[in-house]
Design a protein around this nucleic acid. Structure first.
Length: 210
DNA sequence: ACATTAAGTGATT
DNA sequence: AATCACTTAATGT
């Protein structure tokens, strides 16, 4: 575990902190599409991502989902942090986008380290900041962009996060992520295909250029 | 061969 | 951009 830690966080944290993380953290491996955090859950530990990607969703009153942002290697979840500190319920749902390996850190340690390690403090603050920026971007996308732009961004994000130019999702799943109807996605995807940016197949999409 | 599920399309709001 | 109604195509049993 210490090797994986070094590899992914070594440049961020000092040795002492890495050792503490090793002593107290629990490694977890999850398959794709497993729910890590459900809305309303209380959170008792902080995830540090080693491998894979996690998708953070918000759910509205009707139970419709909306993707807020993705967490990747070297990230942690900002929502988790605010929940832990405030001892409140989770406002979001976290689902493993790919197979995922992560280290869970108990809340107490995480706040203890805040005072103890400058690097940890920076890490937390930095990741909070990044998440904030991503959130703003997500809001912009929803409020100001039309569906076709949102779809493009979605495809780009998804390809980036999975490190693959093949996207395995049905039009229906995409439409649910983007909070729209399947028909609209089909039409927009068709348009992108005609523009030569993607090719469509049953159950997956191949990205040519974005 | 038949049922099921994914995707494509025209018309309407 | 959403919804309906319907078609076509791919896949599973």
């Amino acid at each position: 575990m210490i090797d994986e830690l070094r590899q992914n966080y070594g440049y961020l944290f000092e040795d002492e902190l890495l050792k503490e993380i090793e002593a107290v953290g629990v490694v977890k491996e999850l398959e794709a599409n497993v729910t890590l955090i459900e809305i309303g859950n209380y959170i008792r530990s902080i995830p540090l991502l080693i491998e894979g990607a996690i998708k953070i969703l918000r759910e509205d009153d009707d139970g419709d989902e909306l993707v807020l942002y993705y967490i990747e290697r070297g990230d942690t979840c900002a929502m988790t942090l605010s929940c832990c500190v405030g001892q409140t319920k989770s406002e979001i749902r976290a689902i493993a986008e790919t197979d995922v390996k992560l280290i869970m850190i108990p809340v107490q340690k995480m706040s203890e380290w805040l005072g103890k390690y400058k690097s940890w403090q920076n890490f937390i603050l930095q990741s909070y900041h990044n998440r904030m920026l991503e959130m703003l971007e997500a809001i912009d996308t929803i409020a100001f962009l039309r569906m076709d732009d949102r779809l493009l961004k979605y495809l780009r994000d998804k390809a980036m996060v999975t490190h693959d130019d093949q996207i395995n999702a049905t039009h229906k799943q995409i439409s649910e992520d983007l909070h729209t109807s399947r028909v609209v996605i089909s039409r927009l995807l068709k348009k992108l295909e005609n523009e030569g940016k993607i090719t469509l197949h049953r159950n997956h999409i191949k990205i040519l250029e974005l």
